[in-house]
Amino acid sequence: MSVPIEITDLRVAYESDVEILRGVNLCAAANTMTAIIGPNGAGKSTLLKGVAGVAPVTRGEVKLGERRVEGLPTVDLVKAGISFVPQESSVFGQMTVAENLRLGGWHRRSERDWLNQRVQACGALFESIRPYLERKAGDLSGGQQKLVEIARGLVGEPSLLLLDEPTAGLSPVMVREVYRELARLKERRSVTVLLVEQNVREALEVADRVYVLAMGQNDTEGTAEDVSERLESIVRNWMSREGSGVVS
């Protein structure tokens, strides 16, 4: 079951003196797709990592439905229904694609029938990996590995899906496959999605709402249509800024 997410004044610092995220606010209704865009170093990926529990949150709140989840270990966040597909490669290269997918349902591994069915269903999502379920994931191309990670992120039937630049480094065919699946997810309205993307125009096409970050803070926000219309001025604004958003 999908849930809303509310992020209030979220701060993340990898080391005590280097704050990457400096009080970000975001609100996404259940079953919606929210795109997060911004220039390099804006803190987009760090925001998802903070929510997913793989970057240290130093202050602020993350509410998943009615439950506060900031600072929980990733094990509990996954059990709470959060699935994170990081930008960095996180595939298990020496395992088969099917084994990778099976690990996507790790928190419900005792429910074997359910897990088998989910592995089958998610293994069939992308044409580019469907024939290779028994092949070692490390032998696939970088793009195919990314699709394996996205499919793995869906195995556990998450209520909140965090996608960090899912199309980075993918071929145009694979980008279309990813966006076709995102469109399907949106149509089914079964999961809340936070999507960080560099392919801004494609992201705007599937998103309901858009947040723009710059220098570790909120810059602007609006519906996808609204941000599409203002996109040129928003980008011009990015270009005029200096620095990467890292404050020391």
Binding site: G53, V78, V85, E88, S90, M95, G156
Partner: peptide, 14 residues
């Protein structure tokens, strides 16, 4: 094996 091959992957699958 998951931790050996990708600590990040192991973390995100829970």
């Amino acid at each position: 094996r998951a931790l050996t091959q990708s600590p990040l992957g192991a973390s995100v699958v829970g």
